[in-house]
Simulated assay, not measured.
Amino acid sequence: MSTAPRFSLRAAVTDSVSTGRRDEMPAAIEPEPVEPVQQSTPQRVTKNTKEAKTSRPATRQGARGITVWVEPEIYRMIKLVGLDADMTTQDVMMEAINDLLAKKGKGRIAKTR
């Protein structure tokens, strides 16, 4: 009567499935037939935004993005301000921009969504 092979953690961790390595070459696999690719006429690339269709939301149409890099602690504080006031980060930053513009005498012109 034969006994079942004993489980080896080392063998389980170092096998080809766990490591992704293949020690032996796989059997020859016949490739699936590939459908021929139809040639399409190249489309003209244009920089005119009126012709190009974007998938931007309506709230971002005509708007420009501003990127600001801050320390992680400042980022967390901005997020907390938004959570405390039930505001999005966008709304918190728009309020900050409005406050800056008012302080500099430029009026409160920044719109929220």
Rank of each mutant, 00 (worst) to 15 (best):
M1L: 15
T3F: 14
T3P: 05
T3A: 14
A4G: 09
A4E: 15
P5D: 07
R6T: 13
S8G: 08
S8K: 05
S8F: 06
S8D: 10
S8M: 05
V13I: 15
T14D: 13
T14M: 08
D15T: 09
S16T: 13
V17I: 11
R21H: 09
R21W: 09
R21C: 12
D23Y: 08
D23C: 02
E24T: 14
M25A: 11
A27I: 08
E32N: 13
V34W: 12
V34L: 14
V37M: 11
Q38C: 05
S40P: 02
S40W: 04
T41G: 12
P42D: 00
R44N: 12
T46P: 03
K47I: 09
A52W: 03
A52P: 01
A52D: 08
K53Y: 08
T54W: 02
S55I: 10
T59M: 10
G62F: 02
A63Q: 12
A63C: 14
G65H: 08
V68W: 07
W69Y: 12
V70Y: 03
V70A: 01
E71Y: 09
P72C: 07
P72I: 04
E73S: 02
R76I: 00
M77L: 11
M77H: 07
I78S: 00
L80R: 00
V81R: 01
L83K: 12
L83S: 11
D84T: 12
D86N: 15
M87L: 15
Q90L: 04
V92C: 00
M93N: 02
E95A: 14
I97D: 00
N98G: 06
L101F: 10
G107S: 03
I109D: 03
I109Y: 00
A110K: 02
T112N: 04
R113D: 09
R113K: 14
